[in-house]
Simulated assay, not measured.
Amino acid sequence: MKEHIYKYKSSKVLLKSILSWICLAMQIGISILIVFNGGGIGSLLVVNLVFLIFTIPGIIIHLNYLKNARNAVLILRYNTISLTSSEKEITLNTSDITKVILHEGPRGSRMPWWNYSWFELIDKEGQSIKISCYLLDISDFWLDSLSRKVSSKNLVWEESLFPIIK
């Protein structure tokens, strides 16, 4: 039986989260410059407050996606899709999948977490598999030859400012 296995890769995590880490590094760098150039506590607080608005949500999303992908293994077979994690294993028949929901951040956004996304496969019985972009992107899922039995007509797109995995 042919199968494709997708596991957590640190290179993919770095690629997806790089903007959040750059924003955090800029915050630290600018704070150090303000302190060494004799800037006041007020300017230091304002700079840190502005940067925290951008970095905290990105770090929260990063940790959420990391938690969901770190010990997970996604296995695509011709007739089934399985997600195995340290807590559970869920297997869905590809012919029973009635809905594919893609959760993305706002398109065209300038937020550091704009490129985070996850998708959910739901079958007739209401069972679902949640797959973060750290494990597999939706575009890679559609390109995989073993996922062709899942109809793209069942795709629903949901946009949210904060695409956290629930």
Rank of each mutant, 00 (worst) to 15 (best):
L136P: 07
S117M: 12
L76R: 06
W142N: 08
I138S: 06
L135A: 03
W113E: 04
I60V: 11
N93R: 12
I56G: 00
L92H: 07
V150F: 05
I56R: 06
Y78N: 15
I60G: 05
Y116N: 08
K149I: 07
I59T: 09
L143C: 11
T94A: 11
T84C: 09
Q127E: 13
N79F: 08
N79R: 10
I81Q: 02
L135F: 02
G108A: 08
R110G: 15
L83V: 09
L136M: 10
Y65C: 05
R70W: 14
G105R: 09
L146C: 03
L63M: 13
I131K: 02
S147P: 11
S151K: 03
P106N: 14
S117Q: 14
H103A: 01
K130N: 13
L83R: 09
Y134L: 09
K130E: 12
Y78E: 15
E120D: 09
L76Q: 10
A72V: 10
W114K: 13
R77S: 13
A69W: 06
F141P: 02
G58F: 02
S132C: 06
I90Q: 05
P106Q: 14
S145E: 14
S139K: 12
K130A: 05
I59N: 06
I59Y: 11
G126E: 02
Y134F: 14
S139G: 07
L136N: 03
L66C: 00
L143M: 13
K88W: 14
S147W: 03
K124H: 08
L83S: 01
N79H: 13
S152W: 09
P57L: 11
K124C: 06
W118C: 05
S86T: 13
E104C: 10
T80I: 07
Q127N: 15
C133G: 10
E125L: 10
T91D: 06
V150E: 02
Y78W: 11
W142R: 14
Y65A: 02
A69F: 09
I129V: 11
I56V: 15
I56Y: 05
D144R: 06
S117A: 12
M111Q: 09
S151Y: 05
L76M: 08
G126R: 01
T80P: 01
I56Q: 02
V73M: 14
W113M: 00
E89S: 15
I56T: 02
L121P: 00
L66P: 07
I101A: 00
D140P: 00
F141C: 06
K124L: 14
K149F: 05
K67L: 15
E87M: 10
N93T: 12
S132W: 00
I60Y: 12
S85M: 11
Y65N: 07
L136I: 11
E89G: 10
E125C: 08
N115Q: 10
L146Y: 01
R107W: 14
F141D: 04
K130W: 09
R77Q: 11
P57A: 02
E125T: 12
D137M: 06
P106V: 13
S109C: 08
R77L: 01
Y78L: 15
P57D: 00
R107Q: 14
N79V: 05
A69L: 03
V100R: 00
D144V: 00
S117F: 03
